[in-house]
Design a protein around this nucleic acid. Structure first.
Length: 317
DNA sequence: AGGATTTGACCATC
DNA sequence: GATGGTCAAATCCT
């Protein structure tokens, strides 16, 4: 079974990245710098991407969707508690609380922005349908559904809520999967110009290597399969400002939206491209000074599932 | 005028 | 009964 081999290879990738992480720990134990923290963050993103990719491969193999896995679960084949694969795509009772698969990201916006500043465009169009004050939270939670819900039956929704502890960060929780087609001019590349997901995945799984002399990760095969051209960037990545070419800005924009089976059409396994960007950022070396955050600059990064059996602090020092 | 947002009400779940 | 998710009428915006 091909997917089994892909999962095994990605598991090996995880092992290698963890070895690199340990090596970095050994080299940097006596001092901490922003650059080290940044590299650790990039490593965390690679780990999370690989983790998620394995889940997606499994999803494609089993015909179901589940996006959150603990690393242990990933290796053992056991979904995490949040992976409710028995859920229907959308509710049958209009008022019934739905429990579709969900995934989370955090969005940092300008601290100078207004209190009601709406988080970054994530490549999809959303329509707000509700807002609630949440018990114990200082800021209300906003509810959005895909604009194409009625016209195309797209069931994707998201919830956006400003964090209490850091008001420049929004928690964005996505529910369901976009089944709509991207509108013209939305930044999506024509499907015909994008490499097939399985081609990328296979290349990635065999091409990600660690140079033990330089501690640099390289993805030659992935780069060959999916060079970062405007044609094959995912819509989300494409919408990022040019400054995102820097290591700082490559903080995995758009990793959470649009998870999908690897056989999907325009949403062809977007993580391959983004993982490559992260790896490229890691290999770039010392970062340029972090630019001042302005209203056009946001950072996306993972919020680890609390059921993960890993130490989140070790990823975001 | 049509689409998007706001907001109080309704309902399911805990 | 409390809470959170959704509905839908009213309102706002372009």
């Amino acid at each position: 079974m091909e997917s089994v081999q892909v999962v095994a290879d990605l598991g090996r990738v995880l092992e290698l990245v963890r070895q690199l992480e340990m090596h970095m720990d050994a080299c940097s134990s006596s001092s901490y710098s922003v650059e080290i923290g940044r590299r650790r963050s990039l490593l965390a993103q690679i780990i999370a991407l690989t983790d998620r990719s394995i889940g997606m491969v499994r999803s494609a193999a089993s015909g179901v969707a589940h996006f959150t896995h603990t690393p242990a679960a990933m290796l053992s084949g056991t979904p995490s508690p949040l992976s409710d694969v028995s859920d229907q795509p959308f509710r049958t009772n209009p008022k019934k609380r739905k429990t579709t698969a969900r995934w989370t990201c955090q969005v940092r916006v300008s601290a100078a922005g207004g209190a009601d500043e709406v988080p970054v465009d994530d490549g999809h169009s959303w329509r707000k349908y509700g807002q609630k004050d949440i018990l114990g939270a200082k800021h209300p939670r906003s509810y959005y559904r895909c604009t194409h819900r009625n016209s195309q039956g797209c069931s994707a929704t998201k919830q956006v809520q400003r964090r209490d502890d850091d008001t420049s960060v929004f928690d964005v929780v996505y529910h369901g999967e976009h089944t709509c087609r991207p509108s013209a001019g939305a930044g999506a590349a024509p499907a015909a110009k994008r490499p097939h997901a399985q081609t990328i995945l296979q290349s990635l799984s065999t091409g990600l290597t660690v140079n033990t002399e330089t501690n640099i990760l390289t993805t030659a095969a992935a780069a060959a399969a999916a060079p970062l051209t405007p044609e094959n960037r995912s819509p989300a990545v494409q919408s990022v400002s040019p400054s995102l070419a820097s290591p700082v800005a490559s903080d995995s924009y758009g990793l959470a939206p649009s998870p999908c089976p690897v056989t999907a059409g325009y949403r062809d396994w977007p993580y391959a491209v983004e993982l490559q960007e992260v790896v490229s950022a890691l290999a770039t070396g010392p970062a340029e000074p972090e630019p001042a955050i302005d209203s056009d600059f946001m950072r996306y990064y993972f919020e680890f599932d609390p059921t993960f059996g890993m130490d989140q602090a070790s990823f975001f020092p």
